[in-house]
Design a protein around this nucleic acid. Structure first.
Lengths: 246, 246
DNA sequence: AAGGTTGCTGTCGTCCTGACGAGAAGGAGC
DNA sequence: GCTCCTTCTCGTCAGGACGACAGCAACCTT
């Protein structure tokens, strides 16, 4: 990956400018995931500037000189999608910094992973770029701008793994939800049907995962017995985990 | 965390220098963990320059302009500790970039987590800073330079969690090892004794975790039945996980 | 009233785990 | 050689968790 002979930091610093440092640009990129209409989906923008003009990319942008990384991520989230920080789960995914990932300059991108409930149409943000939802499975083969394909793949795999051992699936639904809604999140993210009865036993049997809210949910289209409503409980982990079917 | 009123990226870029970008320094910091003499330990250096002169810190340094992040981490690992990349497990831990984490300039640090077998005395590297092993438990209360206390805590927690659902404990021992050696790694990292018989059943019963090497290990001090030797198998995950005792 | 849909409770066998017992195979001391 | 000690390895047993169902409850539509 290195475009030069074996590097030497001390030599570089001496020849460049003693007391200074190699300059980098730092950006945040958001892997914003949701489940809409039963489909595991990611928010992508279409680039309208060089490089990768016309390609799909993850939403993101520069970190400001006095801005915390997390704050930069949340700012982008609220501004470009209208998602409130406390309505979603935000965690850092990792740093991506191959020397040639951006042809303009040396950029290190700190990727963030966001689980959000199904949103209305995302607002196109301030730029002129269009922004919309794509089914994760359909984006699988498409080549994204920069190394965003890798970043997205890492985010999707992390999301699938996190549902196994955390109660974070609740971040994909509203504040009050039924066991069935929660199960459909798992099925969409994992791409595999689950047994409703065993799922019900697992989530209701895990202490502090679900807190009953008292009143039942309204009946959906097509009828069926009204489901009990729950809120997220204080649990932070599922032990033992709910393993996805091989 | 922001030292200024609500920031605006477009305004900043316009007022600063259109076409340029906010300059950052990027460093790598290593959380190098091992088990020596039955104690879960981390490699720390003593700083001999401003800032935090005299404090303990994680080893690390600048990423070069054309250097990949992973390459920078491996370069530091090999140069400052003599650990060969293929003898250890290296993974990215995450990015740490609070605006005031370094008083000299804006720095984003990409932390790496390394699991290494017990090493001889680490070579002090090229600087004049002393470098040595510290028991993780003893460093717990000590205040480290920069935000390295947070970074170390994140690395330690990740290490403890990874032993639960991966076979990475084998990265802490040599290429050939006994079940007992592996168990003592778990006990040191988790700080909790494990039942030798149940542990033996779990690790030998997990497909592709251990590959028998044929001949037995030499008898250790104090006698005892010679143990069978194993190598790491091709397994990448433990399903179901081996949960640490509450 | 009949049939369809969804939610909830329960049962049964299998696998996994924690808590042991007991024998195998070595060394140290007498 | 014999006894004690150590560590390793194989077994046993009870309880918990999980996959694969059956069956009933509570709503809808026709």
């Amino acid at each position: 990956m290195t475009r030069q002979p074996p590097p030497d930091e001390a030599a570089w610093l001496a020849s460049y400018d003693p007391g200074r440092f190699p300059p980098f640009a730092v950006t945040v990129d958001m892997v914003l995931l949701t489940v809409r209409h039963g489909t595991f989906s990611v928010l992508l923008v279409e680039r309208d500037t060089h490089p990768f003009r016309g390609d799909l990319a993850l939403p993101g942008g520069f970190v400001l000189p006095d801005e915390d990384l997390d704050a930069a991520a949340v700012r982008r989230l609220e501004r470009e999608t209208g998602v409130r920080r406390d309505a979603a789960h935000v965690e850092q995914l990792g740093a991506f910094g191959a020397p040639d990932r951006d042809p303009r300059m040396r950029v290190v991108s700190v990727a963030y992973l966001v689980f959000a409930p199904d949103l209305e149409a995302p607002s196109p943000g301030e730029g002129t770029r269009s922004v919309s939802w794509f089914a994760v499975d359909e984006v699988d083969g498409v080549s994204l701008a920069f190394d965003h394909g890798q970043v997205l793949a890492a985010g999707v795999e992390r999301a699938r793994a996190k549902l196994e051992y955390t109660p974070l699936a609740a971040a994909f639904v509203g504040p009050e939800f039924t066991v069935g809604e929660l199960r459909r999140v798992y099925e969409a993210v994992w791409g595999h049907p689950l047994d409703p009865r065993n799922f019900h036993r697992k989530v209701t049997g895990t202490p502090d995962f679900l807190v009953p809210v008292g009143h039942p949910a309204p009946v959906g289209p097509g009828g069926g017995r009204p489901a009990a409503l729950f809120r997220r409980g204080p649990a932070t982990a599922l032990r033992p985990a709910m393993l996805r079917p091989s």
